[in-house]
């Protein structure tokens, strides 16, 4: 899952920073020629630059291919559609039953202030989201991959009962 991947990438990089800084901190008391160090650091700096270029370009290529912003027509009939309206402080959903394997388009908006439509799976992992903004409709397409009880949590602070804005959606196997 992307969540764990984000963590697994962060931790080693952060530890690498710790290691380098600790190494330099511990050796700071010795004395060596500043010019030589300055030259080496210049080389390291340009090396870092090219490594970053080499890493970023494929990351962009890979991650920017498939963005959540536009939904194409679906093969095999129209998608299921659920209209989701955020109100202070409840979700109004036009349906709460979905079928596994068939795309669902959530048409998300708000009636009063900004809310955030956060879709949580049965293990309470956030699997998709879009903002619910007054005056706009964001269309979020999601394909449920396993049956169970999903929850919608509010992910944009909307006032006193923000943390109380939960709703349920049930996904079941197609009959």
């Amino acid at each position: 899952m992307i969540h764990s991947l984000a963590w697994q990438v962060t931790v080693p990089l952060v530890l690498a920073f710790f290691a380098v800084f600790a190494w330099v901190a511990l050796g700071a008391g010795d004395k060596a020629d500043a010019t030589a160090i300055s030259q080496t650091s210049g080389r390291i700096r340009s090396w870092i630059f090219w490594v970053l270029v080499a890493v970023f370009l494929p990351i962009f290529g890979y991650t920017l291919r498939d963005l959540p912003y536009s939904v194409a027509a679906v093969a095999g009939g129209p998608p299921q559609v659920i209209k989701a309206i955020g109100h202070q402080w409840r979700w109004e959903l036009s349906g709460t039953e979905v079928q596994v394997g068939k795309p669902v388009d959530f048409h998300i908006t708000a009636s009063d202030v900004n809310h955030g439509f956060g879709l949580y799976d049965p293990d309470l992992k956030l699997i998709a989201q879009a903002q619910a903004m007054p005056g706009y409709t964001n269309v979020l397409r999601h394909v449920f991959t396993r049956p169970g009880k999903y929850r919608v949590l509010c992910l944009e602070y909307c006032g006193l009962v923000h943390h109380g804005m939960l709703a349920e959606i049930t996904a079941s196997e197609a009959k």
Partner: peptide, 30 residues
């Protein structure tokens, strides 16, 4: 001051990761 540069550098890592659209979709406002 030395710590501050470390803090800045390490903080940038998760920030940049979260700015990736596909990651943001499951990490934004968490």
């Amino acid at each position: 001051l030395f710590l501050s540069v470390l803090g800045w550098a390490t903080g940038v890592v998760p920030a940049v990761i979260d700015a990736t659209i596909v990651v943001n979709k499951v990490m934004h406002n968490t």
